[in-house]
Design a protein around this nucleic acid. Structure first.
Lengths: 197, 197
DNA sequence: TTCGCTACCTATCATTGATAGGTTGACACC
DNA sequence: GGTGTCAACCTATCAATGATAGGTAGCGAA
């Protein structure tokens, strides 16, 4: 039967994704070639195309996978105990920590210029991000008890502030930042204060 | 005398920069080739290398030039009349407007992954950005009357929030944003409120 | 004229992402 | 056993791209 062929192909796919993620993290998404990835896996470069449609496809799949983790962590923060203010702050901590840890995935999702952006691939990564934002938006809707323009504006503004810190820390590591933990704590405090007003 | 040779070379350099900026804005920084730029100017592709060290060098020069404009606009906002809160808000408006208008330069400066980042080129763009941040930082220092850790934290946090909005609007144009002007106004209001506390 | 310099050009690389087409080995079926 | 089929992989090769090598037309000064 063809019920459950835990095919070697699926294993290879995992190997490729793992190797690519490691290389992306170590050398930057833009500085890793398909030949690098293939060599890390131990196969020829064209063999990658038996498992993925393109180089970008590998990156997109990695990003989707990472965003499922982020969704889960954000949902946990949203459903945690505590005041809405505390939950929002927790969500912010989770978001920033995710961006810094999974920097390659975060870059792919939010910081890379769209190539020609095939609707299909872009759509997938877009929906991953949408699910994450929806969790934040829902928190604002439940706290404010409505879904008006102001609520959407506050949620989008809050997201922008969270993203800004992650994006700057990733793209300008040489900047004379104050101690990172202090900066993150201060930023989240500023962002969350009166966030729902 | 070699006093003032308003050489044709300098004109060509300007032509190249102008053509490159237009192409970067129209098609995205990553989707423009050196051949595209050369064709737009009407010269051969290798001739570009008589005026610029590399493709990235063109991008860096464009970015530096744009950041001088930004510095000037931010300085004007900092020295304008009004309360510190008003001046900060004005600076935010200037910053966001700049990022959206000069999106190619903004991307080059803040949103592109560093290649191997030659110290020389990276240094130049880094200093351009530093000068802009210094204007923001000075406003915080003068308002708070000190230059302690908290002051630096607030200034860096504020910058991150500003950057976040620009970066997200540029990188996710397909997101269902509320009306842009409303979002920007709301975001600046949130960021500037109690910014100095 | 002849030097030398500027601003170009054509020809050509090496590196990439991607495709074409063939080969191997395992398994099913007669 | 022979034979077909299929997945997984390979080598060879493209086209596009950034960058270099080396030559040349024009022009002003000695």
């Amino acid at each position: 039967m063809t019920v459950a062929p835990p095919s070697k192909a699926e294993d290879r796919r995992e190997q490729i994704l793992n190797a690519a993620m490691r290389l992306f993290l170590d050398h930057g998404v833009q500085n890793v070639t398909t030949r690098d990835i293939a060599a890390a896996v131990g196969i020829s470069q064209p063999s990658l195309y038996a498992h993925f449609k393109s180089r970008e496809d590998i990156a997109v799949k990695l990003s989707e996978r990472a965003f499922e983790q982020l969704s889960a962590r954000m949902a946990a923060a949203a459903n945690a105990a505590g005041t809405p203010h505390e939950r929002l702050k927790c969500m912010g901590q989770v978001y920033v920590a995710f961006g810094l840890e999974q920097s390659a995935a975060y870059r792919i999702a939010f910081m890379l210029e769209k190539p020609t952006a095939q609707p299909s691939e872009k759509q997938a990564i877009h929906e991953s991000g949408m699910r994450c934002f929806a969790i934040l938006h829902d928190l604002f809707k439940s706290v404010r008890g409505s879904d008006d323009l102001k609520t959407a504006a506050l949620a989008q503004s809050t997201w922008a502030s969270m993203h800004g810190l992650v994006a700057l820390l990733l793209s300008r590591p040489e900047f004379p930042w104050i101690e990172q933990e202090v900066l993150i704590a201060c930023h989240l405090e500023q962002v969350c204060r009166r966030a729902f007003d």
